[in-house]
Design a protein around this nucleic acid. Sequence first.
DNA 1: CGGATACGGTGTACCATAGACACAGTTCCG
DNA 2: CGGAACTGTGTCTATGGTACACCGTATCCG
Lengths: 250, 250
Amino acid sequence: MATSGDSQANAVALLWEQPGAPRRGPRPTLTLDAIARAGIAIADADGLAAVTMQRVAAALDVTKMALYRYVPGKDELVALMTDTALGEPPRPGEFSPGDWRAQLDGLAHWLFEQFWAHPWALEATVGARAIGPNELTWLEHVVAALAGSGLRGGEVLDVAATLAGHVRTVAQQGRALAGDGGAEQHLGLAYTALVSGREDRFPALAALLADATEHADGQDQALDFGLNRILDGIALLIDARTQQPPAQQG
Amino acid sequence: MATSGDSQANAVALLWEQPGAPRRGPRPTLTLDAIARAGIAIADADGLAAVTMQRVAAALDVTKMALYRYVPGKDELVALMTDTALGEPPRPGEFSPGDWRAQLDGLAHWLFEQFWAHPWALEATVGARAIGPNELTWLEHVVAALAGSGLRGGEVLDVAATLAGHVRTVAQQGRALAGDGGAEQHLGLAYTALVSGREDRFPALAALLADATEHADGQDQALDFGLNRILDGIALLIDARTQQPPAQQG
DNA sequence: CGGATACGGTGTACCATAGACACAGTTCCG
DNA sequence: CGGAACTGTGTCTATGGTACACCGTATCCG
């Protein structure tokens, strides 16, 4: 399992190729989808570290070496799991046509739900990685929502990145707390434990925590708060663009 | 190396405890800082996967088991590396006092530089993890910048999360391209390769890419673009708050 | 219809890695 | 000066990813 190498290229091929089939020899017992789902079940239950070739194979009643007939290696298996777990994003254009803000909001919430349901997907999508069909479809919908907004191409991609980044962060922070110990319900409490006894070193934080612990807002609020700030900022730009000669050369 | 367990608690202790010393027995050959720096050098050069106890130990001319006298395990070593690599954030209040926007902008850029210089830190900071002193200091500065802005405590933390999330995302996307193959200079090119031949499935994306490939904006622009949108959105909220009876009970 | 040919699953093996444990050398305290 | 605390080392185990040879099976071609 190498982080480097061209496992990325292999993963791309695996994620994008059709299951179209030259049939010869014995019928395969497994399918890529079944393998992915077995891995997802393990990762959902016990985390990404618990996903070993051995365990996935055992869940499918084959030996681990059998898996290598379907996936080139573990990296590619994880990439496959990730895109499968994501699932196909909804088409927000059908529900709120013309309302880019509602569409982006919906897409962000959907993405959050996926990361929330499969927190290991956060770990699986750091560093250089292959982009799967479902992930690209999500991006397609974001781009479609912003078509005709007056934003330039690069800007649209940047908007998508900003949205995805925020969703990831909130999902991660929520899971970092609810995930392992399960004891701490709010990020503030984790900070409070660290700041406590070091108020001289973190005065602003200490003051904030002393005042904020009562009306703790959960991760839902954290998602919407940042999301609304980001969408406000985008709206500002779009408004500026649509009231001017569109997009001066630059 | 277990992702689960209470390695988090151990890491917290390791990151926060003073090197204060009961001295007896032979003088230690190493220091936590030297170990962290050896690990950082390896991770910078060959990625996080290349950081093994063996290799870190070899770089310090000891056996790998000697490291276990200093760190409880590899997870804790990585946590230590991460906070050490981050380094102490600058105090933006000294340079632009009273200007929260300039301060947040500076803090975000600083964080981006750290992640850019140590891309493995992105991988090291997913999932449940311990928060180190430098990371908390960064948060302290963000909170200090927003003190007196009229934002509520939870909202301030959410702002910090949004900023950090955006920085992480941009750093990650930039590295995902520049990192491994080094061939692709812009995210758009990676997308183009995938969309190409599937224009029917990704029409909006295809149109965007066809039009946007020339004026490609690098990761610097991606950072500033999203950052400005986020800061615009925050400014909107702050303005609204400061022009009204401050913070109706929520 | 019968081999050739591909293909799928298995068993065995190898290597790298994280970590446990007992031991031996070293320094300080009383 | 003797023991206690501490440091680095050598050895060992378990686990995980993956290569390879083998054998059985289903399909294709003549």
